[in-house]
Each structure stands twice: as C-alpha cells, then as structure tokens.
Design a protein around this nucleic acid. Structure first.
Length: 264
DNA sequence: CTGCAGGCCCTTA
DNA sequence: TAAGGGCCTGCA
C-alpha cells in the first residue's frame, strides 16, 4: 500500500466526470480502477490522502501518467479565476479534484463511439459485457477480429455495431493507424479520426482529450451546448482559454450535471 | 410506460 | 452547407 498526498485530485469526481466508464466505488471510499490492462484499488483516507494498492514501480510507470499527476491543475484554475467568470469559478470550486486522464487509445475510441446517443449506465454495462470474456480487460483489435455486427448487437450496441466492426477491420489492415494518430497535432488528429464512420466532431474531441491528451480539444455535447446557449448567449469565449479549453469543458460539464441531478 | 440519452449519417433544399 | 429525420436499446 502506498500512501499519497495529492493536490487537485478527487477520485470520486474523476470517476463521475464522464471521461471514463470503468472506475467504480466498490465499498465506501474504495475505488476500483480498471485501465491500461491493470487494476488498482484506491482508498480515500482524507481530503487529499489516498492509499494506492500497487507498488511504487507501478505507480510511477502507470498511474502517474494515467492520472496526469505531473500537471499542476491549480495553474489552470488560477487562469480561469482571473477571467472573473462567475459560472466557471463555481465550476472549478465544485469540481476542484477533476483531472484529465490519459486513457488507452483503442479502448477510448470504442468507448466513445458507443457513448453516442446513449446513457451512462448503459454505456458502462456494454463495456463490461465486451470485457467479460477477457477477464475484465478491454480486448485488443486482434481479439475482436472475428466479432460480427450481430455479435456486437447482442452485446447491446444497436446501430453502433457496424461502426465497431468496420473500425476493428480498419485498425487490423492498417487503414486506421493508431501509432500515426498519436503523432498528430490536435486539428490533424481530429480530422483523421472523423474520417471513420461513427466518429463525428464530438466523439473525435473526446478521444483527443481523454486519451491523446489534447487539452485544447473542446467536446461539445448536449450538456455543453445547453451551457453555451443558456449561460453564454450562444457564444462561449473559448479564446480566453486557448490551449486548455478541454479542461474548462470538463469543469463546466461536471458542474452542470451536478446542478441537474441536485447534487449541490 | 414513454421519452430520451455526453451524436452521427444521410438526404434534401 | 445547413437543417432535419431516423436510428438501437434499456434506463429513469
């Protein structure tokens, strides 16, 4: 067990921030993270104190990167505060422990294709069913190569099944080059991703932000769209947050959903 | 029990 | 090139 004191980190907020679907609270204050072919138990023992159920070696080689622990999020929050945007100030105070994860690229691509026009609990259930035959680990393209559209529909993917079948094929035959994708700048990465059926602007932005760590990517989903319409008269001043608008998006998204669900 | 959920594709003008 | 209908399905 490692004891860590972490600033600007709240595992519960991260788990509920919508960027990942495989972190769950298994008992009070104990969170199970399934990611990058690893499993990790994190126990919250105090405001900023956590127990990590792994070796120091694994912590350094896997989890520091995954949780983006080298980045100082207080700097982002400071800049946001300086804009004197009262809504965003409330948002960063409410979601002060949010971080942008660096998730597995392949899993993130599939996950966010599934997420379209879908609800979160259903998304989680589908992902679990996909992982079930693979000991709970998200399957590689190779492991999915014989899956048919019907197979994916059986898992509950509905009309998205076709997208997944095609993308598995594309990755396996090299048309969809994941390594190449990781070399691209944000705008090129978005363009590359959108070439594939089932990946539009929103899904491409989510993949770029939550896996490729393009923190300037700004996913506009139904929530953000509503925020921009109702609170910014249809025009969000994204230029104020040049270079890290994606992080701002996460604070807004998380805060707005909390209001809707009466969590505050 | 309906309506809808962190969109996207396709068609139409 | 912008706008709008249809789409799988199970959860609230």
């Amino acid at each position: 067990m490692l004891r860590k004191v972490l600033q600007d980190f709240d595992i519960e907020q991260i788990a509920n921030s919508g960027q990942c679907f495989r972190i769950r609270e298994v008992s009070p204050s104990v969170w199970l993270v399934k990611a990058l072919g690893h499993r990790l138990c994190i126990t919250k023992i105090n405001q900023n104190e956590y127990l990590f159920d792994c070796t120091e070696k694994e912590y350094k080689s896997v989890w520091i990167d995954y949780f983006d622990l080298r980045a100082d999020y207080s700097l982002y929050k400071k800049i946001i505060q300086q804009t004197q945007d009262t809504y965003l100030t409330k948002a960063i105070n409410y979601g002060s422990g949010i971080r942008i994860l660096k998730q597995d690229l392949w899993e993130t691509i599939i996950t966010f294709i599934i997420s379209q026009q879908n609800n979160i609990s259903r998304i989680k259930n589908i992902i679990e069913r996909i992982c079930l035959p693979f000991d709970g680990t998200f399957p590689s393209p190779t492991l999915l190569k014989d899956y048919t559209e019907v197979d994916f529909k059986t898992l509950g993917l509905g009309y998205r099944a076709r997208y997944i079948v095609d993308i598995v094929k594309a990755v396996l035959n090299g048309t969809f080059d994941l390594n190449y994708l990781t070399t691209l700048q944000t705008q090129d990465a978005l363009r590359y991703l959108k070439k594939f059926d089932g990946i539009g602007p929103k899904v491409a932005s989510c993949i770029s932000l939550f896996s490729l760590h393009k923190i300037d990517a700004f996913p506009v989903d139904i929530w953000v769209k509503r925020i921009i319409e109702t609170r910014y008269a249809g025009a969000f001043p994204i230029e104020k947050y040049a270079g890290f608008a994606g992080i701002v998006q996460q604070y807004m998204f998380f805060y707005e959903r909390s209001l809707k669900h009466n969590l505050i």
